[in-house]
Each structure stands twice: as structure tokens, then as C-alpha cells.
Nucleic acid binder design. Structure first.
Length: 632
RNA sequence: GCUGGCGUAGCUCAAUCGGUAGAGCAACGGUUUUGUAAACCGUAGGUUGCGGGUUCGAGUCCCAUCGCCAGCUCCA
């Protein structure tokens, strides 16, 4: 008698012969791309030898999408191999919104090549080749990929351990080493688009050969693909590098790559943000200082930056000695701390600084405001006793919460642990890592662990946000440091009169003010909330007759701390309104003859449009309230 | 830094095969005096990123360089 298995599908239990393929079941969802059996994603054509609960994965499931995109990557590789038979395949995974394949090519790729590859991919789709799984012995795998001169695949085979099944997938003449799973046929891939080409080192190591990485995306239908491409276009319009200059906030110039020119409006925004940070920190016992921005090399040698950070520093040679511009404030703050004898009663001492920092970033890594060479942090160093670590860390996380809630910025917490080139004593590192984890748990924060990504002097907690194109950027950082107090020999006097070593907490909440503004521009698409907007209100006289009245209103607004201007140009009202809307000014106070007579302003808001006449100056008091900083 | 791509007026873009660099918006001058997203007329604006080369002739072809874009690497 043939062995049977029991499969539960959509609540119904079926008795089926062992070896049945999900693909052949009459219950199969016609949109299914793969099957899910008790937590495992399987090919639809996988013969089932044991029973369980089976679900269909479609393009709406992330698992289904992943299979779809992974098969699309194979499709890409097959097309490239048809066009360049001596191309050598690297790896080609699925991504969130698409896929890529790293391929070594004898010639550089050009735009028209992408179109040719796409055309070939469509041909393979129309051939509707069956996709077949092969399970291979190591010898077979080596033979297959040697025959095809796929040296990179052979390297992968070598690294596969003996306890793993070596599998490959075949579609037509094409075979790729792959664990799968995959779609049943190439015909499933309804629409593909190759988006861009770039270089990528084999296995991500700089000394390895550079492969050509071809990115693409794919969807079941042409309409879905076009919708996706339209969304990408939308996102590009939010890009801070486009919006910033458009809104006249900042610019970059060839003469100073990686440094920001802050225009009047952008700098206003910058100062508002800094003021926000100042007020929150003063309330919490921080003291603002300003320390030198250039130090003799000897300090950097003592602090460890010379060994761990020199390549990223701007160095200056004068009078036969080397000086370095500061990439961080910590050594300066430590020196300031050291300048007096400190009692245990003085701690914690919280030193804040907003001064300029410079880091020499490699040219290819610069990216608008999000990666610059010259920037400012809302930086602070907390000098604390060991028994104060927990409480102070708790306070920092609390401040962070206030700040990020004020902007409604979605963020992720990452806990980065000891890197390979760490400085100092292993026991201290372990202690610091345990402290950080304990505070995270006590605050109930969700976090991910990023092993070996800590700073060279201590483990850190990073907050990152995502830009308009889905790239992740680190904003806040909180680091516990037992090393620097040691290196620079910091101490305080404890309650028994003994010298003790303080602990340093490095922290920046906004992170870099530059980067934070870049993220904010994209987050709000340039339409900043009232309290942040560089120009909060624009007074628009309808005719020349109201310019004096308009000026009067503007002066009064300013006197009460509202940033306002008057558009007195000889233009129609509609024109001025249109410009104010495009500049994303949150409030427009329109004044015509009627307003002047009745002592009103005609209010228009950026979001709601015309709201009619409001008595003046009553409206001023409403505006003052609406424009308050979100300090709690 | 590496691989590939792109640099034309302040912005968005055009210029056939190598043959006189052009338009809209913005700016400026004037007319208009206006009630909720673009009034009208006119003027000016350029060493085509910078430097070489090929050619009778280069925005266009070649070399080099700078900057930017995508990704890699790096990343407090």
C-alpha cells in the first residue's frame, strides 16, 4: 500500500499520497507562488514526504514576494549569460523591493545593454521554461560549475559544509547554484524592469575583484510595476538634496565638497532646532561649553584617536608639528573636566557642546546633508560615578523619547557591541555592554543587536531613521565609555577622600544637526510644523494701499517671537499665495482694504486654505500658542 | 577610495550627422492696484564644470581633472 500523508489546507484535512506536489493539488490557489509548510517555504513542485499545515504564499506575502524576486534574479542571470556566455555569476538575492545579481562581465555595461537584457528576460518569460530543483553531490556540483567555468560558484561550493544539501535550479539551458525556493515556471514573472547598475566587490571585500551589480524589480503585472515606479518618482521629490535648494535652505558647492552652505532660511531652521535642544538640556541639568576645535597630535595619541581614527581626521602641519581638527568633542570635554579637582558631590557633570566637527570621509561616501565632512552635533558628555550610570542612562533615553516624539519620527534602536579593533580591557567592555542592555530592558525598548559595530572606545546604542529612498541613517548615539577616563587619567574624590575614576557617557540626541535636518526635510516633505518653519507667517497685502498695515502686523508678530515677512511685491494676491504655498509657509495673513478697516487679517493656512477674516491682534495670541516648541 | 553614469542660463530642459548655443519659469525695468495657487509688455542673462587634444570648425569626438548621482567599501 502507498504511504499517505495528512495535509491541512485552509482548515480542511486531506489524506494524500506521499510525494504529492502542492502544484498538483486541486485546492491550489491560482495565485500561489510558493507553499508554506509548518514554517518552511517550499517550491510548489516539491514532493511532500511528510504532512502538516500548508498555506499558499502569493505576491501579497513577503515570503511569496521574495521567491518571486529571487526567481527574477535568476531570470536576469540567465539573460546575461545568453548575451555574454563568458560572464561569471556571483550571487543574486531578492531585496525588499526587487533584486540584484552580481556578475563579472568582460566589458562594462551601458544603458542600451540594460534594455537588451530586459528584452532577453522577457523572451525567457514567454518561453515559460519550467524551473526545476536539482540536489547534487559535491562532486556533481563541482563538475557542473567547472564545465561552465563559474569560478565564483565553485568558491561558494567549497564553503558549503558537508551537512548541507547542495542544490541548484535549472531553467532551460541555465543552471544556478541555489538553495531556493523558486517559482514553478519563468512565465510567472509578468513585468520586469532593470533599474540601475553599479559596482560591488566580490564578497564585499575591497581587495576582491569588482563585479557588476545589476539591480531590477519585478511584479506579476505591468500595472503593479508601473505603480511601483511612480511611487519611486514620488519619493525622489522628497529627497532633501532636491528640496533643500528648492526651498532655499542650503546648498553645496564644488569648492568645499562635504561642507554645507546654510542659507538664511535653512540656518533659521538650524537655530530653531539647536534652541529646542538647548532648552530641553538646560532643563535637565546640562551645561553648555565651547572647547577648542584643533588640538596637537599628542592629545589624539593619548585618546586613542591617532591609532583608531587618524584616516578620518583633517590634519594640519605647522612649525614641524601635526595638529588635528576634532572629529569628536570627547577629548576636549575630558580635558575640561580634568582642569579642576572634582568631588563625588559634583557628579554627574553634563557638558554639552554644539561646535563644529570635521571628519575626512572618503569622497564616494558623501551624500547631501546625510553624510558630510563638516557638521555639528547636539553633543554632550556625562561624567558620572559608577552608581549613577543607570540613572543617567535612563535620563538620556527619556530625553531621546521626548525629542523623537516631538517630530513623530519613526526610528529603530540598535545595540552595537565590541568591535574587533577595540581599545582597553575586556572586563570593562563586558561591564559596559551589560549596563547598556540592562537600561534598555528597564525602559522596555525594542532593539536589535549589531555585533562588533561599537565605537573603538565603547559599546553604543544607536537610533536610526530611514530616508525617502529607504536608506538607513544613524541619528542619535549613546555610548558608555570606561576607556577614555583611563587614557586621559580622569578622577574625582570619593566620600572617603580617595581618587576614583569617573565613567563617561557620550551622547547625541539629534546626532548631527545637519543629518537630522536632512531627515526632517524628507520626513515633512519640506512642510515643517509651525514651530520649526523658517518663516512661520507671511503677510500679503492685496494692494499697495495695505503695505503699511501689513508692515505693522509683521512688526508685532516679530515682537512676539513669530518669524514673519511681508510680500509687498507688485503682484496679484493669487500669485503671492501660490508662491507662499510653494515655499510651504504655514500661515498666510492676507490684508486688503476690508481688513484694514475692520482690524482683521484674512487667514489662510498651508493645509486648509482660506479660513476667512480673524480679528487682529486676537489672532496673534492664537498663533503664539500654536507656535510653541513641543518641550514635553 | 573603487566600478559605472551624468555635468548646457539661478531652476527645468532643447540644440539633426561635428556647422551661428535656444525656450519656459525665476531675475530686472515699466504698465496694472488687484480678495485666496501663475496679470501684461519689455530687458538682461552663457568661456556649454575646469584644462588639454583631434578638426577648416567641438556643447557634440578623444585624453586628463573636479564635482555630482547609484552602489560597493567605510561610517562616532
Amino acid at each position: 500500500m502507498e504511504p499517505e500523508i495528512q495535509l491541512e489546507i485552509e482548515g480542511e484535512v486531506h489524506q494524500l499520497p506521499s510525494g504529492v506536489r502542492p502544484f498538483d493539488l486541486p485546492e491550489r490557489d491560482p495565485e500561489a507562488l510558493a507553499a508554506w509548510l509548518d514554517g518552511q517555504v517550499l517550491d510548489l513542485k516539491k514532493p511532500l514526504l511528510k504532512g502538516g499545515t500548508l498555506q499558499w504564499l502569493t505576491f501579497d506575502d513577503s515570503g511569496g514576494r521574495q521567491v518571486f524576486r529571487h526567481s527574477s534574479a535568476h531570470l536576469l542571470a540567465q539573460a546575461v549569460k545568453r548575451l555574454w556566455p563568458n560572464a561569471k555569476l556571483g550571487t543574486g538575492p531578492a531585496l525588499e523591493d526587487g533584486f540584484y545579481y552580481d556578475i563579472w562581465l568582460p566589458v562594462p555595461l551601458t544603458e542600451p545593454d540594460l534594455a537588451r537584457i530586459e528584452a532577453e528576460m522577457r523572451r525567457i518569460v514567454s518561453e515559460n521554461l519550467p524551473i526545476e530543483r536539482l540536489e547534487l553531490s559535491r562532486e556533481e556540483a563541482v563538475r557542473i560549475f567547472s564545465e561552465r567555468a563559474e569560478e565564483f560558484k565553485l568558491q561558494i561550493v567549497e564553503r558549503i559544509t558537508d551537512d548541507t544539501t547542495i542544490s541548484a535550479y535549472r531553467q532551460g539551458e541555465f543552471v544556478d547554484l541555489c538553495t531556493g525556493p523558486h517559482l514553478p515556471q519563468t512565465g510567472y514573472i509578468g513585468a520586469v524592469k532593470l533599474t540601475n547598475v553599479s559596482g560591488a566587490y566580490w564578497r564585499g571585500e575591497e581587495q576582491n575583484p569588482m563585479m557588476t551589480r545589476i539591480y531590477g524589480t519585478s511584479f506579476p503585472t505591468q500595472e503593479a510595476l508601473e505603480e511601483h515606479l511612480a511611487r519611486l518618482e514620488e519619493a525622489k521629490l522628497r529627497d532633501h538634496r532636491k528640496l533643500g535648494p528648492q526651498l532655499d535652505l542650503f546648498s553645496f558647492k564644488e569648492e568645499a565638497p562635504g561642507f554645507t552652505f546654510w542659507h538664511p532660511k535653512g540656518y533659521q531652521l538650524y537655530r530653531t532646532l539647536e534652541e529646542f535642544s538647548r532648552r530641553l538640556q538646560e532643563e535637565r541639568g546640562y551645561q553648555e561649553v565651547s572647547t577648542p576645535w584643533i588640538y596637537r597630535a599628542a592629545l589624539w595619541q593619548r585618546s586613542g584617536h591617532w591609532d583608531h581614527y587618524r584616516d578620518n581626521m583633517f590634519l594640519i602641519e605647522r612649525d614641524d608639528e601635526v595638529l588635528g581638527a576634532k572629529p569628536m568633542n570627547c577629548p576636549g570635554h575630558a580635558l575640561l573636566f580634568k582642569g579642576n579637582i572634582r568631588s563625588y558631590r559634583d557628579l554627574p557633570i553634563r557638558l554639552a557642546e554644539y561646535g563644529p566637527l570635521s571628519r575626512f570621509e572618503r569622497s564616494g561616501t558623501l551624500h547631501g546633508l546625510l553624510r558630510v565632512r563638516g557638521f555639528h552635533q547636539d553633543d554632550a558628555h556625562l561624567f558620572v560615578r559608577e552608581d549613577q550610570i543607570h540613572q543617567e542612562m535612563f535620563g538620556v533615553l527619556d530625553l531621546m523619547d521626548v525629542v523623537y516624539r516631538a517630530f513623530g519620527l519613526p526610528y529603530e534602536v540598535v545595540f552595537s557591541t565590541r568591535p574587533d579593533d577595540y581599545m582597553g580591557d575586556l572586563a570593562l567592555w563586558n561591564q559596559a555592554e551589560q549596563e547598556l542592555e540592562r537600561v534598555l530592558r528597564d525602559r522596555g525598548l525594542k532593539y536589535q543587536i549589531n555585533p562588533k559595530d561599537g565605537a573603538f572606545y565603547g559599546p553604543k546604542l544607536d537610533i536610526s531613521a530611514i530616508d525617502s529612498l529607504g536608506r538607513r541613517w544613524q541619528l542619535a548615539t549613546i555610548q558608555l565609555d570606561f576607556q577614555l577616563p583611563e587614557k586621559l587619567d580622569l578622577h574625582y574624590v570619593d566620600d572617603e577622600g580617595h581618587w576614583r575614576r569617573p565613567v563617561m557617557i557620550h551622547r547625541a540626541i539629534l546626532g548631527s544637526v545637519e543629518r537630522f535636518i536632512g531627515i526632517l526635510v524628507e520626513h515633512y516633505a519640506g512642510a515643517f510644523p509651525l514651530w520649526l518653519a523658517p518663516i512661520q507667517a507671511r503677510v500679503i497685502p492685496i494692494t499697495e494701499q495695505q503695505v503699511t498695515y501689513a508692515e505693522e502686523i509683521r512688526r508685532k508678530l516679530h515682537r512676539h517671537g513669530i518669524r514673519a515677512d511681508v510680500d509687498a511685491r507688485n503682484q496679484k494676491m493669487g500669485y503671492k499665495i501660490r508662491e507662499a504655498q510653494m515655499e510651504k509657509v504655514p500661515r498666510m495673513l492676507i490684508v486688503g482694504g476690508r481688513d484694514q478697516e475692520n482690524h482683521t487679517v484674512s487667514l489662510r493656512t498651508r493645509e486648509q486654505g482660506d479660513l476667512g477674516a480673524k480679528p487682529w491682534p486676537d489672532y496673534l495670541y492664537q498663533l503664539i500658542e500654536e507656535a510653541e516648541m513641543p518641550l514635553s
